[in-house]
């Protein structure tokens, strides 16, 4: 494990050096990523230009969801976003190269590239989150501070696990890019808004099937001190760490299953 971490750091450091060599290009990408991602938040602002509340949530509260979701998602993207390339790797046969090195296949795929520009979009999320803190009147308790600071600990693994599961489909259907995008980027959209604005089946989907509601929705109810309009029991607000652990284990199993399938069919 310590070995993996040191290899990870070395790969990332080499990548950063390589990308920072083109300083102007890097800054432009960063700025581009930052500003482009604001169009997402513009949608939220447009909604609140017409409504004081969205399904009982104020602008500051929605911004809280949006900011926490955005930051977690961008960090997940930095960590495992390279999985989007898996169909290409399989099609070109380059996935074979991954199997002849003394490291796990998943580790190698996610470290194939490292896109620093994602920090631009992360910055946008952070800015919106700051706005949320300014606009909401949270009654801070030790518990709430704790839940908020620990949020990345489960939100990133949950997003990353969903990403891994989506990408694993590439071992069966090479043209599965759309599937991967649907569950990752699509899933992220669902966590930017209060769950009540979506239909009942989507709510069930993100609670029971692809449990993205545990990324930030349930913990945010606790931090913001809001009653749950869906009437979920109190403990659900604290279930996120457990959900994350289960999801990571399940995703790991599914990934290994996919690799085994690849190694028996070679496609």
């Amino acid at each position: 494990m310590a070995d993996l971490l040191s290899i990870y750091v070395h790969i990332m450091a080499a990548r950063m050096r390589a990308q920072l060599q083109y300083r102007v290009s890097f800054v432009l990408q960063l700025v581009g990523s930052f500003s482009l991602s604001f169009t997402d938040f513009a949608v939220v602002l447009v909604i609140f230009a017409h409504l004081p509340y969205l399904a009982g949530w104020s602008l500051g509260e929605v911004a809280f969801l949006y900011g926490t979701s955005y930051m977690a998602f961008q960090l997940s993207d930095i960590a495992v976003g390279q999985l989007d390339q898996l169909p290409v790797l399989i099609q070109s046969g380059d996935f074979d190269m991954v199997l002849i090195r003394p490291l796990g296949a998943l580790f190698q795929v996610v470290t194939l590239d490292f896109t620093l520009r994602r920090f631009g979009a992360f910055g946008q999320g952070a800015l919106v989150f700051a706005l949320a803190l300014a606009r909401t009147d949270i009654h801070w308790t030790a518990g709430r501070v704790l839940v908020l600071t620990l949020m990345p600990v489960w939100s990133i693994p949950i997003f990353a696990s969903v990403w891994v599961v989506g990408a694993t489909s590439a071992f069966w259907a090479v043209r599965s890019m759309e599937v991967i995008n649907l569950v990752t980027h699509g899933g992220q959209l669902l966590t930017q808004y209060p769950l009540q604005v979506f239909g009942a089946w989507i709510q069930r989907l993100v609670i029971f099937v692809v449990p993205l509601a545990f990324v930030n929705y349930f913990p945010s109810l606790y931090v913001l001190g809001k009653p749950d309009p869906l009437g979920a029991p109190e403990f659900v607000r604290f279930a996120s760490p457990v959900v994350a652990i289960v999801l990571v284990v399940v995703a790991g199993r599914i990934w290994n299953f996919g690799v085994r399938h690849y190694r028996s069919t070679g496609s």
Binding site: I11, A14, R15, A18
Partner: peptide, 16 residues
């Protein structure tokens, strides 16, 4: 995207 030297160096870590 890395210089040849960096690739070699990374392999040193990967294969210990």
């Amino acid at each position: 995207d890395l210089p040849l030297r960096d690739s070699f160096d990374l392999l040193r870590y990967i294969y210990r």
